[in-house]
Design a binder for these strands. Structure first.
Lengths: 225, 225
DNA sequence: GCAAATTAATGATTTATTCAAG
DNA sequence: CTTGAATAAATCATTAATTTGC
């Protein structure tokens, strides 16, 4: 009986909702089907979790011996019908407007608002909005970088000015980017798990069974690499 | 009237819930206070959003010409009353057990389960679990890297080596790092916004007012940088 | 013209870095 | 100085453009 055995047992017990520790851990409910029951549009593929090897496996990764220690990993494999958000022109337009307006990392509330608005033009979720801003910001940055590099590189040869030019270019870029940045200084950014539930109803009776309403939302893949 | 003007107007209108586009955008409700109404323990600092300049600004970043072209460094400013999760011994123990058991990037459901279990030993949220695994994984990796570097560095000294050693070390590190990866091929991993709502009750009557239960969860900061 | 085959964009995820609380 | 929290960078994967052979 090695340590790994113990760990393994523990892990299994944990996932199976067995009382694994001394505390009064009342056995949870059978852990519902949880199959496609999850939120509708979720690409959660339980099948693959159960039967990892199914799809054509496009990924190679043969090289670079990937050895993962312990568990038999859950495979979240793309499920066929995996659909990613496909923004409409209106949605893109609004998002770009907001971006130009200075929005870079909208907070939970802002994302919610944006999502609601954009929802008028097509199916969309909050995470799509979040990702869009992250990606757009990052890719604008790349673009700027490329541009300034290209700019500085080509005129390179003459005398001194090239350098000057380079610096100037950089300065410009920075300014430009900053220019449209939000007017407020940067401050604390934080992630948050936020819930849509209307808190207004709290006024009436206090729900004893305060069902976990706080949400979740995180990576859906069972096991990382 | 420049483009920026228009954009600005649009943005403002957007945040204020004014009908900004032609579509039948029925004016939303006054957009509740939304101040501290947000989830309880959230470090949402509205103050800083309003009054950016407050903290002593500690960041230097002078050296190492950080030509981060665009952005002006993100200043994550802590807000005063911010309280971060302080894990108990039991919690840490369980988390490490799970980690040893092979858990690296738990999915939404797993995180939920873990959170519930750990909740018995102290206050905790899903995001804490999420972050813990991310950090632990990353820091284990760093440790491995450091170790292997140290290992390869000591026995090395002879002649040309220094350079060679460096390269070799890097190679080793990579492998080592991979070494503890999961045994399963890597495949598609997806993020998911998942909700805790018990899906069991769906059997009875279908709740018409399907209140948005899908959660949210994203960055809570008002404006990026 | 059109469908398989490439390539370009970009949505979604993971990994690396950074910041600061305790 | 450890590590929770957050952001940025890198990467993966899928959809849409575009090209190519017929």
């Amino acid at each position: 009986m090695t340590t790994s055995m113990k760990v393994h047992h523990f892990t299994r017990a944990f996932w199976e909702h067995e009382p694994f520790l001394t505390l009064g851990c009342k056995r949870l409910r059978p852990l519902a089907p949880k199959l496609p029951t999850t939120t509708t549009s979720l690409p959660f593929d339980l099948k693959t979790f159960i039967r990892p090897e199914s799809a054509p496996r496009k990924q190679v990764s043969s090289l670079h011996n990937n050895k993962d220690p312990p568990s038999p990993q859950p495979q979240v494999e793309t499920h066929p019908g995996g659909t990613r958000w496909n923004p409409t022109q209106e949605q893109i337009g609004i998002l770009e407007m907001l971006y130009k307006g200075g929005t870079r990392t909208p907070n939970a509330q802002q994302i919610e608002q944006i999502t609601v608005q954009l929802g008028k033009y097509g199916k969309i979720e909050g995470k799509n909005v979040f990702y869009w801003f992250q990606n757009h910001k990052a890719r604008e940055r790349q673009k700027q970088k490329r541009n300034s590099l290209a700019f500085s590189r080509s005129p390179r040869t003459p005398t001194i000015h090239s350098v000057v030019t380079l610096e100037a270019a950089k300065g410009e870029v920075v300014d430009r980017d900053e220019e449209e940045g939000s007017p407020y200084k940067k401050k604390c950014r934080r992630w948050v798990f936020d819930c849509l539930e209307e808190q207004s109803m709290s006024s009436s009776s206090v729900c004893e069974e305060e069902e976990h309403r706080t949400l979740k939302l995180f990576p859906l893949h069972p096991e990382g690499r």
